[in-house]
Design a protein around this nucleic acid. Structure first.
Lengths: 344, 344
DNA sequence: CTGAAAGCGCTTACAG
DNA sequence: CTGAAAGCGCTTACAG
């Protein structure tokens, strides 16, 4: 008769109890051998090892975790695992986690606040030791009980909403201001800004940088030069084409992020007159396009690394108040941003 | 006095026991409410809900899992979370896992067999229900006890070594053969092949495709036209420059993967004569370069989706023998592969 | 050097 | 409708 009690459980994996029985020792002795603890005679150890091999035993870390209290895992909620900006951030977090002996659970919010919440809370239910969140929503009070309960939490790329917590950001405002000022310095007076949706913090910060640069140069801003919205190619294309047409078209574009830049490059390549372009975020092959694309570069890997290191410092018991870290951006002139304005 | 027994455990999170005590009910009643099971009077349910909210209780899924047997999580070992080829595969696996209510744990092997093994076994120790592996090593017998113990395993992108298991691949041989034949059809007779390291299955399959196409065309292959090795830019650059110099340089290059292609594009852009190029793997902006890059495209998202669906079919109890699924590739002519050979 | 008992936070199987 | 007891597979705290 099959033991119906264990039939479909973990495919009948052997447990320490099974190993103990086979080796003819107590449970604690098996535990000692499995964990490399001292105080076992070589002969006993050998018998236990043989039983382990014969049964194909592997310690169940889930059970271990339940008893020990720390799961040695962290959760990362980002916008899209496949995005070329977030993928290196993901990898950087992984490396730091690995250095601290922790596993990484991650998931994509797809820019949906509800999905962000589901993922973050699912990670908390699994009792990750810490959480790194790239916010999709703007209200993170749902994490309050979790943080109080001891789950260290760091936000990256965008600040937490209605919650005081550690956050690691790029200087979106300063980066955009410098990028737009660069276009101004090359003679542009009518500059378009195409950015992400208005509820996204980085989008409005970059727009603020645009306005600051225009104001500093004493240039007026026509409302038709600014367009915030989804970064889907169709939307961006329409926005860019609108700004580039009409009697007083913009002579330069500032693209609010990598996805916008890519579409802007396509539109400009098909445009009748040369149009200058500076994009926020660097991207692969930017230097190989003609013209090569001038960008305001962030360092996504550094964002991830900084956030993860902060998280593990918290896990090591550092209790200083939440801090906001802002990483600098870097303007990389490559050609597209140095094109002079087309003559009217 | 502090309760030293629970002082540093999960930051003193409330448990079902605490909720039960506060609501004045039994443990099982709390369990019923938490899991939405029937058979609780509205009044009792309300009392329990209040206690849950007041205490900030969240069910510990790790404990639940221990009792239930399935962890509702899968592990994915790939080469590099940040790689533009693997990132979409990662995302596709995530989506399928999500649709099945499972969480995703993942990690980068960094093309190191030992690290692949550590990651895969760490996931097994956490008792993931299933495992998806993009092999770095060529001996996966270490997974035999795990698979026997019931952890469903699917390999992607490269076959398992010394192990019979489900595998989902792209048709590397056919794709490379077609790509090289395309160059031959445009008049090339001296074609270089730069690929990944020889121990990587896809690298040798693509090389085999190259040889098949050359042979089919009756063309000889000089050994100096073939170079396998790491895809680091320096190595690829040196290989490409060697093939493009000398008295009888190649007139076309076939690049064995996306990283090779990118470096090849750079070398060719700086070359004295036009050189044709076909690359394995599509990449963003390939169509915007000049010339636009002709590629043999794989569909990494489809690879990931197919593998994950196969995995969950296994988890649903399908017991058919391991299968090898091969996905077709697609030649996308864009310009660089249609350049005629430079005259001698 | 070794092991029996209790417990981590849940669910299962049962009894009332 | 409700709950006490046993158990998931480990580790902890102790005793021998």
């Amino acid at each position: 008769m099959a033991d119906t009690n264990t039939q479909y459980r973990y495919g009948n994996r052997p447990t320490m109890k099974d190993v103990a029985a086979r080796a003819g020792v107590g449970l604690k002795t098996v535990s000692r051998v499995v964990n490399g603890e001292p105080g076992v005679t070589p002969d006993t150890e050998r018998r236990v090892q043989e039983a382990i091999t014969a049964l194909g035993f592997r310690r169940n870390d889930s059970a271990r975790i339940l008893r020990k209290g720390r799961t040695a895992s962290i959760g990362l909620v980002l916008e899209d695992l496949a995005d070329p900006f977030y993928a290196p951030l993901n990898r950087a977090v992984e490396e730091v986690a690995r250095a601290h002996g922790a596993l990484l659970i991650n998931g994509s919010s797809a820019e949906d606040p509800e999905r962000e919440r589901e993922l973050a809370l699912a990670f908390c239910a699994r009792r990750v030791d810490g959480l790194i969140v790239i916010p999709a929503g703007d209200d993170h009070r749902y994490l309050e009980p979790e943080i109080t309960a001891g789950i260290a939490t760091v936000f990256v790329d965008r600040p937490a909403g209605r919650l005081t917590a550690d956050v690691v950001l790029s200087d979106s405002f300063g980066g955009a201001r410098d990028g737009v000022a660069h276009l101004v310095a090359h003679g542009h007076r009518r500059i378009g800004f195409i950015g992400d949706q208005a509820h996204i913090h980085t989008a409005t910060e970059r727009l603020r940088g645009y306005h600051a640069a225009m104001r500093a140069a004493g240039l007026p801003v026509d409302e038709s030069w600014v367009s915030l919205g989804p970064t889907a190619p169709d939307r961006v294309r329409a926005a860019a084409e609108a700004m580039l047409s009409g009697p007083r078209p913009v002579t330069a574009l500032f693209a609010g992020n990598n996805r916008v830049t890519v579409t802007a490059v396509r539109v400009i390549a098909a445009a009748a007159r040369p149009v200058a372009l500076v994009g926020f975020d660097d991207f692969e092959l930017a230097d190989l396009l003609s013209p090569a694309v001038t960008v305001v570069a962030q360092d996504p890997a550094r964002l991830g690394r900084t956030a993860a290191e902060r998280l593990f410092r918290r896990l090591d018991g550092v209790t200083e108040p939440p801090r906001r870290v802002e990483l600098p951006t870097r303007l990389i002139p490559r050609g597209s941003g140095e094109i002079p304005p087309a003559e009217d």
